[in-house]
């Protein structure tokens, strides 16, 4: 079964198409970083992975999407696209946290040393970051605790208080590199681990589709982690 995966929760637009029969092996992938032009880039990227892989949209068995946390506007482009496509095709959706997708690539761990924890960090603006903790277990990582939003200082103080070796990854680490550099017993992952991995998304979705761990399109909701009340802008509609 073919699976289309997309994540637009950070400044990257990522799209991949994979085959669940092949354990979610990626047939084609597009990664566009840094532009924040999600609405412009996502549809052409989807067309591109279809052309590249020779898979037509009506051959898809499921759509997988990163639901954040991340940039609200970017996030909504991916979630809306995934929901509406799945609804029109009559297929289910596998949703995954964008933090999971930063922590998931197997190569992330191969690169590190003897880390006990992986902590993906996504820039949340206003000097805050989204993050979660993942314990390194045989064969991968397992999340411990909730997805959170908070100040960079609080996250660093929290990690500093522990005694475990930490592998950091994500655009929040890049943005606050100097602060994170002061954290003991930590290492920063390379730039290839800055954004949610859509290859990991397709792979993870292949397993979930197998176990029928999917939802219907109308049950896919963005993970904002911030109340919209906090976002009140008394802007005039035009």
């Amino acid at each position: 079964m073919f699976i289309l995966g997309m994540d637009t929760a950070t400044s990257q637009v990522g799209v991949a198409i994979g085959d669940s029969a092949d354990g979610g092996g990626v047939l084609a992938e597009v990664l566009i970083a840094g532009d924040r032009r999600h609405a412009e880039q996502l549809a052409p990227a989807i067309q591109h992975v279809c052309d590249e892989s020779g898979v037509r949209l009506d051959q898809l068995g499921a759509i997988a999407v990163g639901i954040g946390p991340g940039l609200f506007t970017g996030l909504r482009v991916g979630v809306t696209t995934a929901k509406v496509m799945a609804q029109a095709l009559g297929i289910p959706v596998v949703s995954a946290s964008s933090l999971d997708l930063i922590a998931a690539p197997p190569a992330l761990l191969e690169e590190g040393h003897a880390h006990a924890l992986v902590v993906p960090v996504i820039d949340a603006r206003r000097r805050e970051v989204f993050s979660a903790r993942y314990r390194v277990v045989p064969g991968g990582v397992q999340r411990e605790g909730d997805y959170t939003v908070g100040s960079v200082e609080d996250l660093i103080a929290d990690l500093q208080a522990g005694s475990e070796h930490v592998l950091l990854a994500g655009d929040g680490v890049t943005r606050y590199r100097e602060q994170f550099a002061g954290l003991d017993r930590s290492e920063m992952a390379g730039p290839e681990f800055e954004y949610p991995s859509v290859a990991a998304l397709v792979q993870l979705a292949a397993g979930r589709v197998e176990r029928e761990e999917f939802v219907q399109p109308w049950d896919v909701h963005p993970m904002y982690l911030r109340e919209s009340d906090a976002e009140l802008h008394w802007e005039t509609p035009r």
């Binding site: 549809a43 696209t81 029109a88 802007e235």
Partner: peptide, 22 residues
């Protein structure tokens, strides 16, 4: 457009998704 940027993005993304599928 014109309108609220974040709001417009939802409708445009939905329309493009349908255009791709169909």
């Amino acid at each position: 457009g014109p309108g609220l940027a974040g709001a417009l993005l939802v409708g445009v993304s939905a329309a493009k998704a349908l255009a791709l599928v169909a």
